[in-house]
Design a protein around this nucleic acid. Structure first.
Lengths: 348, 348
DNA sequence: GTGAAAGCGCTAACAT
DNA sequence: ATGTTAGCGCTTTCAC
């Protein structure tokens, strides 16, 4: 049990040099004479000296900590963002703090306060509410980056996915399969993500000349439970949709279950499409037709952007939009199968 | 644009007091005269002064940061541990750093090095490899807690789940349903968790007087892919098991898919049980018979333990074992259905 | 190339 | 009840 931690002065004394020299050996080895350097290094080794990170952080006024605020750690997609950001940050010697907002602005405020007390160097806001993130609660020095969320100031980097094209791909796919009555399961309307996807969906419908049936477009929450419930609601209508787009894989998985609850088979009775290419979608039965979603990449890019901006505060703001590609699965099928089977009411 | 951050001295000067008094107002308000206090508080407000957290951390020699090292953020169970720990920590003003070990000891070493540079106050090791965690790489002052992993030193708190009873419950359930040929899909044998669950399974078999058929007990990895593959392997045997226990819900979900791949129905053709009560198991079709698993609670308790030990370094080590209860789902059914294999008659 | 000294912002004795 | 002083461990001028 060491009575005291060894400091730079202990090393200096033992090596017969000044603390400044030890510091130089450790930080800018090139500028110190080789002989001195080796001597110091030997003592460092011998005493197994490790510079006090807290003191370093203090003198540098940098914690080398970056936070990622996401609506939920339970969603496998967000988990991939964590992975991407974590990978990028750790290779640069940065630590990653996770903030779980549960989609509430209040929580975000609390998290930001906490982060201020942790002196994080940067914050990535991913998805979340439509409200402006409470950056004012942050350490003013902290730089920010946004994922699928609009920035409220210049000099922040933003990363989006191309929902417009993505929705067009999914809708186009369903249209090719003969579907016209397409239901839509939306996320929490309080989130920009949900609003944007909904708008993109309607846009795609129009672009493809498909009928617009507002009663088939439901808003909800970002939970599997809602996917299940919403799906049942849609399928229980007198004129149910023949295909349903759930604008998130979690919703889609819930929808799959909802269909099963009321004895509808997918895709024989109804086609169901997801949105974020969750790894889970490869294991459901049927597998999910969905959209490739660059979660890992989004996390990496946002982390990169933070680090970059830490070193070049005035760098031009990045604004990146990732494409979304169709990932065909078994959950969407031809309309004729539905027609031959479904009984209820007339068709439009 | 502030040319400089306002410090405690700025506040002191403006309020006509010493820095020490400002510090007292902020930290131990009770001991300063009300009038002075109010005056200082007013200035704090006016200058919107926020104490430099880095300086605080430095002087206190405490970062108020705790790390959680888990094998994967992609697993919904681990996510619940994150949630539990995050909740507990944030209410105490602690930040949570996530370390993703991907089950590799090498990664753990790297993470611990990183954490040392972040001067974390405590580390929770959850699951992971069977090797001793590289605590030596940590800041020696950091306290530790372990989840489902054996501690290598006294004075650390450990949290386990009662695999023995848990496995007995599952096996007992299957036995009641008439199953005797029970297959087992294990996790990565390098992890203690996998080894313990396997041992508990064999133990349960013996306890129930069920036949021990080693060929039906497979080791693998902690992935859905392995669950799928392993399941197919078991079911393709000349004498396949009538029930399979996957010792993790991810494995079980993979197994469900594996059964579907080769056209076996669950539970009509084969029963499949999971292990960690993942929320996903409620949404699969069929829903998973599994074991309640106190992930959130494990995270909370471990975080609590860390905080406690931070304040009482010499506290007696905690060793807690959580019970595991059966969570019946649709994925396990009566043996007679398997035997007859014709009509899907009664369901359990 | 290296040392001396100042200082980052805060807190904790010690005085008063 | 409040002010003074002395660090915490490191980096960084500025001399030499």
């Amino acid at each position: 049990m060491h009575s005291k931690k060894t400091t730079i002065h202990d090393v200096a004394r033992k090596a017969g040099v000044s603390a400044a020299t030890v510091s130089r050996v450790l930080n800018t080895p090139a500028i110190v004479r080789e002989e001195t350097r080796n001597r110091v290094l030997a003592v460092v080794q011998e005493l197994s000296y490790v510079p006090n990170p807290l003191a370093k952080a203090f003198t540098h006024d940098r914690s080398r900590l970056v936070a990622l605020i996401i609506p939920s750690v339970l969603n496998a997609n967000f988990a991939d963002i964590i992975r991407g950001a974590g990978y990028e940050l750790s290779t640069e010697g940065y630590g990653l703090i996770i903030g779980n907002s549960e989609e509430e602005l209040g929580q975000e405020v609390g998290i930001c306060r906490l982060l201020r007390d942790k002196a994080v160097d940067g914050v990535i806001f991913a998805f979340g509410t439509g409200d402006a993130p409470p950056v004012s609660e942050l350490n003013p020095r902290a730089v920010t980056a946004f994922i699928d969320r609009e920035a409220d100031s210049p000099y922040v980097d933003t990363f989006f996915v191309d929902d417009t094209t993505g929705m067009r791909r999914i809708c186009g796919h369903l249209a090719e399969l003969g579907h016209e009555r397409i239901g839509f399961l939306g996320g929490a309307p309080a989130t920009v993500t949900a609003r944007r996807r909904r708008a993109a969906f309607l846009d795609a419908l129009t672009g493809l000349g498909l009928p617009m049936i507002p009663g088939l477009h439901l808003d909800g929450e970002w939970t599997m439970a809602w996917g299940r419930e919403g799906c049942k609601r849609l399928l229980s209508r007198p004129e149910p949709p023949t295909a349903i787009i759930a604008c998130g894989d979690h919703l889609a998985i819930g929808a799959l279950r909802g269909a099963a609850d009321i004895g509808r088979r997918v895709p024989e009775d109804v086609s169901i499409a997801g949105y974020d290419n969750s790894p889970l979608g490869r294991y459901t039965t049927p597998t999910l037709t969905t959209l490739s979603f660059p979660n890992y990449e989004l996390g990496r890019r946002a982390a990169r952007a933070i680090i970059r901006r830490l070193y070049q505060p005035g760098a031009a703001p990045l604004r990146w939009t990732f494409p979304l590609e169709l990932v065909p699965g078994e959950s969407c099928g031809w309309l004729r199968n539905v027609v031959s089977r479904a009984a209820p009411g007339a068709r439009s």
